[in-house]
């Protein structure tokens, strides 16, 4: 859960500094003990810390710096020109970038959709079905499967002229079914549908865990008071699931900003730019067109979005969530 991520001092941290009153000898002993702890602490965390510094912390600083440069991979280090805010100004007039942002915003719609479906399925699976294990595995399969393979399978299923989906649609009387990922008007929606299909498994599992932490006697008490199913849902299930929903909402929103694999495999941002999204455009700019500076400014914007959501989450958590 999100709240388990919050740092709380481990038990015993407060006692550590409390035995100040003591003989000189004891104080000296305590100090060397503390220095020993310091040393061992650093030894234990340093592999992770060094790795994170080199592979994450230094690169994020580099990204933010490179965002102010005009630079192409092939020019070498001498080719860097510092252009101030020029990249960011260009982004505001860049149609593909603006379209990517717009598509990212549309993609946000998938989050509430798969959350509602997952919650409904979770409630049914948790209390109203036999063979719970089967259902968990069945709904989880798209999430656990290799996304490249899944995307390729859907690409074939969606094949416009003789793919199985359109054959079925034609046989039930729809004369001209949509061309799905080949049609600029349907491509993004098709990808969103697949994304919902994939995400349900994860959300479902989290919701089932959330449901299992609701005390059963709350429902029993409500039944004695004559509450019907809907009232129980409105008054007990929904509010007590709110921390879970909040967590899924935030991680869901953040993950829509990171959508890449499915676009790279299925549409490459096309047809005619209809499925371009921020990370796809970043990849295309950096690793296909080799415009490092410009791509870094896109990365900086991406970073900004994700930071805003994360900080917003902390601010909102207190207000919205019923614990």
């Amino acid at each position: 859960m999100a709240r388990t991520m919050k740092s709380s001092p481990p038990p015993g941290l407060h006692e550590a500094g409390n035995n100040r009153a003591g003989t000189n000898r004891r104080r000296g002993f305590g100090r060397s003990l503390r220095r020993g702890e310091q040393l061992w602490g650093m030894v234990f965390i340093s592999p992770m810390l060094i790795g994170v510094m080199i592979l994450v912390l230094f690169p994020i600083i580099a990204t933010l710096v490179l965002g102010f440069a005009d630079w192409n991979f092939v020019q070498g280090w001498d080719g860097i020109r510092w252009v101030g805010l020029q990249n960011f100004r260009s982004l505001l007039e860049d149609d593909i970038f603006l379209k990517s942002i717009r598509n990212n915003m549309i993609f946000l719609l998938t989050v509430p959709i798969y959350m509602i479906i997952s919650m409904a399925l979770a409630i049914l699976i948790d209390r109203h079905v036999y063979m719970k294990g089967y259902f968990k595995v069945a709904y989880f399969m798209p999430y656990i499967s290799n996304i490249v393979a899944v995307a390729v399978v859907w690409q074939v299923l969606f094949q416009p002229s003789y793919g199985p989906i359109n054959e079925v649609l034609r046989s039930i009387g729809i004369a001209s079914p949509p061309k799905w990922i080949a049609d600029p008007n349907y491509a993004l929606v098709s990808i969103m549908m697949i994304s919902v299909w994939i995400s349900i498994g994860f959300n479902l599992i989290i919701y089932i865990a959330g449901l299992q932490s609701i005390p059963k006697d709350l429902y029993e008490a409500a039944e004695i008071d004559g509450a019907n199913g809907w009232t129980k849902f409105r008054r007990i299930t929904l509010p007590l699931l709110s921390p879970t929903s909040f967590f899924l909402l935030v991680t869901g929103i953040i993950s829509t900003f990171k959508v890449f694999d499915i676009i790279a495999v299925m549409t490459q941002g096309g047809p005619i730019g209809s499925t371009t999204m921020m990370v796809w455009y970043l990849y295309d700019t950096a690793f296909v067109n080799l415009k490092v500076g410009y791509a870094s400014s896109i990365a900086a914007v991406l970073f900004g979005f994700v930071m805003l959501i994360t900080l917003g989450q902390w601010a909102a958590q207190k207000k919205w969530v019923n614990y």
Binding site: S7, Q38, W40, I45, I60, F257, K258, F303
Partner: peptide, 26 residues
């Protein structure tokens, strides 16, 4: 228990929020 631990943990926590794709180029 060591003093620097708390601060270093915050640094690690911060890196957790950085989207992997924002650091691909460096």
């Amino acid at each position: 228990q060591f003093a620097a631990g708390k601060w270093l943990f915050l640094i690690v926590l911060f890196t957790y929020m950085i989207p992997g794709q924002a650091i691909l180029i460096p």
